[in-house]
């Protein structure tokens, strides 16, 4: 291991010698960083309705199926989606709200499912942390209602439930939400919006264009992405 220890020192020495101000530390770097230009669009300008519509349009461009409903209708809409899928076996994160688990299906809650058990499932239902309308991106922070990474990876069919308040217009708004410190009024979902250790940003189903730039949907990830957008009551 000594060669590696030496390499560490050698590389850091070279890197420091290469730069004109080698004595700088993290605090100096932070001062410099704060002066960097950030003149790009940091806030969206659309109305709530237009923002949600943009997200829906973008998701549909990616061939995702999108439904809207009120909070009260959600369990019924989920059940209808499951029925329409023609699938029977589903996995779900351990803390998916109980009323989302429509009766009449085989539910495998993830209390440590193994890969084979997840692979056998025909679909997965999860929550999400955020969505970015501008790019049609669904943000998953892999909280207890969103599930481990493998849950949204192996099943071929993914139903994702988003609340309208989770939808931002542009990407920097998502990063702003991640920087907000949780306070005493924070609900459980808000707490998921700290800087994540694990995150997956999904912008449409798995795809490739490696053969003659022809876009083919569905390589390794889920081939079918369904989104239910829950509008706030009232």
């Amino acid at each position: 291991m000594s060669a590696i220890v030496q390499s560490r020192k050698m590389i850091l020495d070279r890197v420091r010698a290469a730069i004109q101000h080698p004595g700088k530390d993290l605090a100096d770097a932070a001062v410099e960083y704060s002066a960097l230009p950030h003149n790009y669009t940091r806030r969206g300008s659309l109305s709530t309705a237009a923002r949600l519509q943009l997200l829906i349009d973008r998701l549909r461009e990616y061939d995702a199926e999108v439904l809207e409903c009120n909070a009260g209708e959600l369990p019924a809409v989920i059940a209808a989606q499951l029925a329409a899928s023609g699938r029977h076996t589903f996995v779900a994160p351990a803390r998916l709200p109980a009323d989302w688990l429509a009766p009449g299906y085989e539910w495998r809650l993830d209390h440590g499912l193994n890969t084979a058990e997840i692979e056998e499932a025909e679909g997965v239902v999860t929550a999400a942390s955020c969505a970015v309308a501008d790019s049609g991106t669904i943000v998953i922070h892999h909280t207890a209602a969103e599930g481990r990474r493998v849950l949204t990876l192996l099943p071929d069919w993914h139903l994702c439930i988003l609340r309208a308040s989770q939808v931002v217009e542009v990407l920097p708004e998502y990063f702003d939400r991640c920087r907000q410190q949780p306070n005493s009024h924070s609900s459980e979902e808000d707490l998921s919006m700290v800087t994540p250790a694990l995150a997956t940003y999904i912008s449409g189903p798995s795809a490739t264009a490696d053969i003659e730039m022809t876009r083919i949907k569905g390589v390794h990830g889920p081939r079918f992405l369904h989104v239910i957008l829950v509008r706030e009551q009232g």
Partner: peptide, 27 residues
């Protein structure tokens, strides 16, 4: 925002994964 548009002409690439060290029980 820049990478996907520049690389493949998409608003965002289908999957972006971020992980930090090791997460018990995941990966």
């Amino acid at each position: 925002q820049l990478l996907a548009r520049s690389a493949t002409g998409e608003r965002m690439n289908p999957y972006t994964s971020i992980w930090t060290g090791v997460t018990p029980g995941d990966g």
